[in-house]
Design a protein around this nucleic acid. Sequence first.
DNA 1: ACGCTGACTATTA
DNA 2: CTAATAGCCAGCG
Length: 124
Amino acid sequence: MKKESAKLKTVNPSGGKDVSFFEAVFEVVRQIPKGKVTSYGAIAEALGTKESARMVGWAMNQSHFVKPTVPAHRVVNRQGRLSGKMHFSPPERMQELLEKEGIQIVEDQIIDFQKHFWDPNEMS
DNA sequence: ACGCTGACTATTA
DNA sequence: CTAATAGCCAGCG
């Protein structure tokens, strides 16, 4: 399954100002359906930079400054593990939110991660 | 400008 | 299972 990049809608609100791909990441994350989760790599791939999942994680770091609020709690690593929970206001917040959406978590790991997995490339 | 670090991932041992 | 290694790219001292 190939996936052509060329996504990068690159909303240029100021016209002339370079757009950070973070904006694209934030949009994708905001589009994650409730009760679903995705991985950094999946988002990175959706942006055409699957090799740089780190940049996605780094983008999430800015998510706390961005508005509207970005559901970063729906973004986990490839193992379905809450690797970034420690970066939340209270780390427990992430798990609470996920459980609230119907996702089961044990030992910081999502149960049936694949079942709750949402692929940004699958969205119509 | 250089080197380290990091909310990652895949591979190898 | 864990540990180490490599690739990735932007921010910070």
